[in-house]
Amino acid sequence: MDFNFTEEQDMVRDGLTRMVRENYDWDTRRGVVASEAGWRPEVWAQLAELGILGMPFSEEDGGFGGGAVDSMVVMEEFGKGLVVEPFVPTVVCAGGFLKHAGTAAQKEEHIGGIVDGSRIFAFAYAEPRGRYDYANLETTAKKDGGDYVLNGHKAVVIGAPWASHLIVTARTSGERTDKQGISVFVVDKSADGVVTRDYPTIDGRHASEVYFENVTVSPEALIGEEGNALPLIERVTDEAIAAQCAEACGAMKVAHTMTVEYSRQRKQFGVPIGKFQVLQHRMVDMYTEYEQSVSLTYLATLRLDADERTRQLAVSAAKARIGQAAHHIGQEAIQIHGGMGMTDELAIGAYFKRLTIFDSEFGNVDHHMKRHIALS
């Protein structure tokens, strides 16, 4: 299998490497994360200017004709710098729903805004009692004449404080855990009845609890077929998982590199701790985990366009194994750094936090192991 990237993808990687290096050194990122805004709109505008936000969209939809591999390249570089800008919620998730099931009018209205950076989305799917089950929904969307009225609560909506629009999953019929009766809507965050409670997350991003209190949306807000959105949700979240696996690979690579460099500088008993064989073995194990994660990310990304079962097997295998690798590399990095690794003075603590949180997004290790077993 050919794992070589195209010349254009290599150019994008090189450009993003420079951009992340210039905009995401440790002191700058720490200041951005601690600021009231928590992100930089000017960086988002720069990504739009470079064409990064339009890469995964077809030329017919106003993009640059890329796909999942291009998103993988972008996310790996973002992972290296712990970039907080909402690429996955906006480009991968919202863009995925619009690409796969949006009407011509919806694509025209929203994709152009995503590509030029003027429209930012957050994906409101998780609920307090959902436990990774996309069908376990208490948020409802009931017909009222020609419109829909939304009521419910979405939890930990990443990027919502910065979003102009929300992609919302809601139940239009059936009981709470039924596989049928699920629909997806585009909701303007400024609509009457949308209430948000914003907060920073432990890994430096920002999220919101989003409440819908009799929010009226038109039929044109419905993405795809009413009541049959679960397969679409699973497809888009699988694409988001593959993108975040690439992000985790970037973060793991930097965490390993930082640990090796620290082991060459930190001395005990008059010698660098990297001379101790037991620590050398542990750092080799970290590198092995990273290389396995890269291979699984490639496989999952390349199988996103396969049949549903093949796609889900590859994605769940990657998410489960990379979740384990992220825990291992993050914890080993902290232990080898010692107490300094837990301070805000060193960047390694931030990488540890992001790698830890990675496991909980779109299903943890146990969830994806169970899904993989069920599909096998």
Results as ranks from 00 to 15, higher is better:
Ala207Tyr: 09
Ile202Lys: 05
Phe362His: 10
Trp44Asp: 00
Met19Gly: 05
Val184Ile: 04
Arg119Thr: 15
Leu47Ala: 03
Arg197Asp: 13
Leu137Ser: 05
Arg205Gln: 13
Val74Ala: 00
Arg235Gly: 03
Ala333Gln: 01
Thr172Cys: 10
Met11Gly: 04
Ala300Trp: 02
Phe212Gln: 09
Asp61Pro: 04
Pro41Val: 14
Val91Ile: 04
Ser360Phe: 07
Tyr262Asp: 08
Leu296Gly: 05
Ile52Lys: 00
Gln244Asp: 08
Leu230Gln: 09
Ile241His: 01
Ile329Pro: 09
Val73Trp: 00
Arg321Ile: 13
Met1Tyr: 13
Asp25Arg: 09
Leu222Ala: 04
Ala306His: 08
Gln9Asp: 07
Val83Met: 15
Phe276Trp: 14
Tyr262Ser: 09
Ala314Asp: 13
Ser58Leu: 01
Lys319Arg: 14
His100Pro: 06
Arg354Phe: 03
Met342Tyr: 14
Glu220Gly: 02
Asn214Trp: 02
Ala255Thr: 12
Asn228Tyr: 13
Ser360Val: 07
Gly130Ser: 05
Val43Trp: 10
Ala243Glu: 00
Tyr351Asp: 01
Arg18His: 05
Phe121Leu: 02
Ile114Arg: 10
Val260Ser: 06
Val217Arg: 10
Lys319Ile: 11
Asp25Lys: 07
His206Asn: 14
Glu59Gly: 07
Pro231Gly: 08
Val69Tyr: 04
Arg171Lys: 15
Pro272Asn: 07
Cys245His: 07
Ala229Met: 08
Ala317Gln: 11
Ala124Thr: 08
Ala243Ser: 03
His328Thr: 14
Val215Gly: 05
Gly270Cys: 09
Gln244Arg: 14
Leu150His: 05
Thr288Asn: 13
Phe5Ala: 03
Ser58Pro: 04
Tyr290Ser: 02
Arg321Asp: 15
Gly152Trp: 11
Gly250Ser: 01
Val294Phe: 00
Arg129Leu: 15
Gly95Glu: 05
Ala155Glu: 07
Phe3Gly: 00
Glu361Tyr: 08
Ser118Glu: 13
Val84Cys: 08
Val254Asp: 04
Phe123Val: 04
His100Glu: 12
Val69Ala: 08
Thr288Cys: 13
Gln324Thr: 15
Val20Tyr: 10
Tyr211Cys: 07
Met55Val: 01
Arg176Leu: 15
Gly67Arg: 13
Asp192Asn: 01
Lys319Gln: 06
Ala350Gln: 12
Ser376Arg: 14
Ile52Val: 15
Ile223His: 00
His256Cys: 12
Thr139Arg: 07
Pro128Trp: 02
Ile167Gln: 00
Gln335His: 06
Glu239Gln: 14
Phe358Ser: 07
Leu222Trp: 00
Arg235Cys: 05
Thr216Asn: 10
Ile158Gly: 09
Met75Trp: 04
Phe3Trp: 08
Val315Phe: 05
Ala246Thr: 03
Asp14Gln: 10
Phe212Leu: 11
Met75His: 02
Asp14Glu: 12
Asn364Tyr: 03
Val20Ala: 07
His206Glu: 13
Met55Lys: 04
Val69Ile: 15
Ala45Gly: 11
Gly38Arg: 15
Val215Leu: 04
Val33Cys: 08
Gly66Lys: 05
Asp307Ala: 06
Met55Ala: 06
Lys80Gly: 12
Ala300Pro: 02
Ala101Phe: 07
Arg264Leu: 14
Glu76Arg: 10
Thr216Trp: 03
Ile114Val: 11
Arg205Glu: 14
Ala255Asn: 02
Gly339Asn: 10
Leu16Asn: 04
Glu220Cys: 03
